[in-house]
Each structure stands twice: as structure tokens, then as C-alpha cells.
């Protein structure tokens, strides 16, 4: 009927497993974003969703279409590359901006900036 009919059973089972584990990982990461109490704790939660979930789901897609040999799997490889490279940059920049804002507003519980030693300047 569709392209999935041609998938051999071992590949279908692997695709199912990878897809379900990837989606569950994403769900756990987003749950952490919802539940964790503090912004600095919350900053860690979506990374598991982005890296783990993206890599597992793209692997499922790569396996499916590599076994079927119906289309190029170039998109998935590019998606894995971009997401793996860009997520740490985004979250690091966001954490830096938040730290700057919290220091500027002098919130409690934020590490202070190191004062320069008297010798240097």
C-alpha cells in the first residue's frame, strides 16, 4: 500500500524503537522545562530533548529510508549536524544574558563577578 509495506521486519522494529525512545526523550526534556524550579536549572532540561531526541529520531528516519533506498538521507545528516552544533551556542548565550541581567538587577543567589586583584587593573 505505502512505502512502509516494503520495510523488512527487523528494520521496522528498529525504526519503531528508535522513534519511540526519541519521542520519549523529548517528552522528558520538555517535562523538565515545565517542572524545574529555577531558570538556571531549567536551562539544562531542553538540551536532552534537542540532542538526544533529534539524534534518535533522525537515526530512525535514516534507517527507514536507507533500507528502502527510496530517497537521499542527506537532510537528516544535516539536521543532526546543525542541531548538535547550534544548541550549545544558543543555550550558552542565553545563560550568559540571564546572568548579566540578574547581576544588573542584583538578585539574590547569583554569583558575583570576580573583583580584579589590587595589583592588576
Amino acid at each position: 500500500m505505502s512505502h512502509l509495506t516494503d520495510l523488512p521486519p527487523w528494520a521496522a522494529l528498529l525504526v519503531c524503537g528508535l522513534m519511540l525512545v526519541g519521542a520519549a526523550t523529548t517528552l522528558i526534556g520538555s517535562l523538565g522545562l515545565l517542572r524545574l524550579p529555577d531558570f538556571y536549572a531549567r536551562l539544562h532540561a531542553p538540551t536532552i530533548a534537542t540532542s538526544g531526541g533529534t539524534i534518535l529520531l533522525c537515526l530512525a528516519s535514516i534507517l527507514c529510508f536507507a533500507v528502502l533506498q527510496s530517497r537521499w538521507v542527506f537532510h537528516e545528516v544535516l539536521i543532526i549536524f546543525f542541531v548538535t552544533v547550534t544548541t550549545p551556542v544558543t543555550l550558552m548565550l542565553l545563560g550568559q544574558a540571564t546572568l548579566y541581567r540578574d547581576r544588573f538587577e542584583e538578585q539574590q543567589g547569583v554569583p558575583r563577578k570576580q573583583k580584579p586583584a589590587p595589583g592588576e587593573e
Binding site: S2, L4, T5, L7, A12, L13, V15, C16, M19
Partner: peptide, 8 residues
């Protein structure tokens, strides 16, 4: 096996 993939 198509059904398993569709459901997952």
C-alpha cells in the same frame, strides 16, 4: 509490520 510503524 506496516501497522507497527504507523502506530508507533
Amino acid at each position: 509490520m506496516e501497522l507497527a510503524v504507523v502506530w508507533s
